[in-house]
Design a protein around this nucleic acid. Structure first.
Lengths: 150, 150
DNA sequence: TTTGATCTTTACGTTTACGTAAACTAGATG
DNA sequence: CATCTAGTTTACGTAAACGTAAAGATCAAA
């Protein structure tokens, strides 16, 4: 059994920590509701190699691992990773006990991603600063016109 | 003359503060080089109402304002705004001295954007934490195998 | 004047991440 | 048995953000 049996958090799901906490297997509907995605999306992710649910006849049965991977995918998306990038990271994740060289490669990749995210944060700070400045200007204009600003 | 005559910063351009600092008018090539975007992109942005360069005959001549708006567009993009969203913000920006109600609407919009960016930052923090955790696991595995980590 | 570099418009092509509709299957329920 | 209700596959459609190719205009240098 590999890593990544859980990746609970975030506000990505309607109910952050709740519904699937006890269960061991999930239907497609379970996951669409918990994570507010369409069934189409889940099948699409499977097609792209991000999920790999078992089957009971025709129907998909998602494991806790699938669920965790889905959470990971959605988290990755919200921070701007493409599905392809997420898949790559999940693969590196699962390689787990590979060769030393593979581990080093994986480690380098992860470092890159982390640095990229840190840069994103500073980009966000800059834009927030600009938006805040603009807001202040607007507030000032509103104040001049007599209305008490917010 | 409206707001937004400058939006210098960021690592969006090859040379952060430098090349166009003195000039007053820019060719399409100037901007492609300074901001590392294609000419097609600049024409596309114009088509979408994000830029509005003057013409000398057929050729486009970009003002400092165009250049500032371009910087704004690229900054917006890197933090995840769509071009449409950026255009909307630029419009709100330029409305500048509009009605009180318009100002209030603009202010609300800007607040939304800011909150969204703050949420993005916490999302990034979560993912960075996860990636860091994964990296630590890998480092530990590497250490076990005798190689000194990193 | 011919070449060539840079610009232009027009328009079809491409990738990502799904949406949406059609047609089929299987199990539950009146 | 007929009808839902959920699920399935297959496949075409779509929006965003450009890329790329075609064909023509302009201006300077050889």
């Amino acid at each position: 059994m590999t890593e990544l049996e859980n990746f609970g958090g975030a506000h990505f799901a309607s109910d952050p920590e709740g519904p699937g906490a006890g269960r061991d297997v999930f239907t497609i509907r379970d996951l669409t509701k918990e994570f507010a995605v369409s069934a189409r999306t889940l099948r699409f992710y499977e097609e792209k190699g991000l999920l790999d649910p078992a089957r009971r006849g025709e129907q998909r049965l998602y494991s806790r691992r699938d669920r965790a991977r889905l959470a990971y995918v959605l988290a990755g998306k919200t921070v701007g990773f493409s599905l392809e990038e997420v898949r790559e990271m999940l693969d590196l994740y699962d390689l787990g006990d590979g060769q030393v060289t593979q581990l080093k490669v994986a480690l380098a990749k992860f470092s890159e991603r982390i640095e990229r995210l840190e840069r994103q944060k500073t980009d966000i700070d800059r834009v927030v600063a600009e938006l805040t400045r603009a807001s202040d200007v607007m507030k000032a204009k509103l104040a001049v016109r007599g209305q008490a600003g917010d």
